[in-house]
Nucleic acid binder design. Sequence first.
DNA 1: TATATTGTTCGTAAGTTTGCGAAAAACAAA
DNA 2: TTTGTTTTTCGCAAACTTACGAACAATATA
Lengths: 107, 107
Amino acid sequence: MEDKKYTNEQTQIARFAKAMGHPARMAILDFLASQENCYFGDIHEELPIAKATVSQHLKELKEAGLIQGEIETPKVKYCINRENWALASKLFTNFFCECRTKKTCCG
Amino acid sequence: MEDKKYTNEQTQIARFAKAMGHPARMAILDFLASQENCYFGDIHEELPIAKATVSQHLKELKEAGLIQGEIETPKVKYCINRENWALASKLFTNFFCECRTKKTCCG
DNA sequence: TATATTGTTCGTAAGTTTGCGAAAAACAAA
DNA sequence: TTTGTTTTTCGCAAACTTACGAACAATATA
């Protein structure tokens, strides 16, 4: 309990998980992952929330590295950041699939 | 944008993700997933935070369904909730592995 | 230059999270 | 009954999140 910190892996997966920790952001990710055209307006139409809020969620996903945006005046095109998506995929897969739940703790 | 809501899957995965969205909680999950003995005290020793805070994080993980606790007076034994762990594993795996990032959007 | 389109940022309100120490609960042991 | 052990709950402060409408920015088009 003195100087202990968290591992880079724990910090990174928590970062991704936090970004995924809201239904609206999951809906955005689902949408982007299934679309070729992914303009802000299209995303906004998919969601039951105000523009400003959508923009905010997109910003968080971008900051977590899961998506990226590109201006295509006058629109903005968003999409999955494939490199980080792959990283996240790997981290989550490892986390869940290390088959560490073999033990008999708690029956 | 009228009455749209989120799918059950989006809501459920967001719930799991939110619980995983803090390094301390990831550390707890990592620890529980690798241990046979998983008493509160052991978990607390692993973490750089106060007892009260650990207890709070454990409560959140429990409410998300990822872990479970069992009183073994005077201690409390925590462990992974294997059923929900499997569900979470499936949801995250599907989410990331649907290979939906094939498109050329954003280069 | 005015007007329209598309998104972002600002300001604000309400609610949630994270963290702590102190107190309480639950029980066993002296 | 007092004391000790282990964990939770309480009360609080500070920070962050979620959401909105209004205002703004950037650029096309009339």
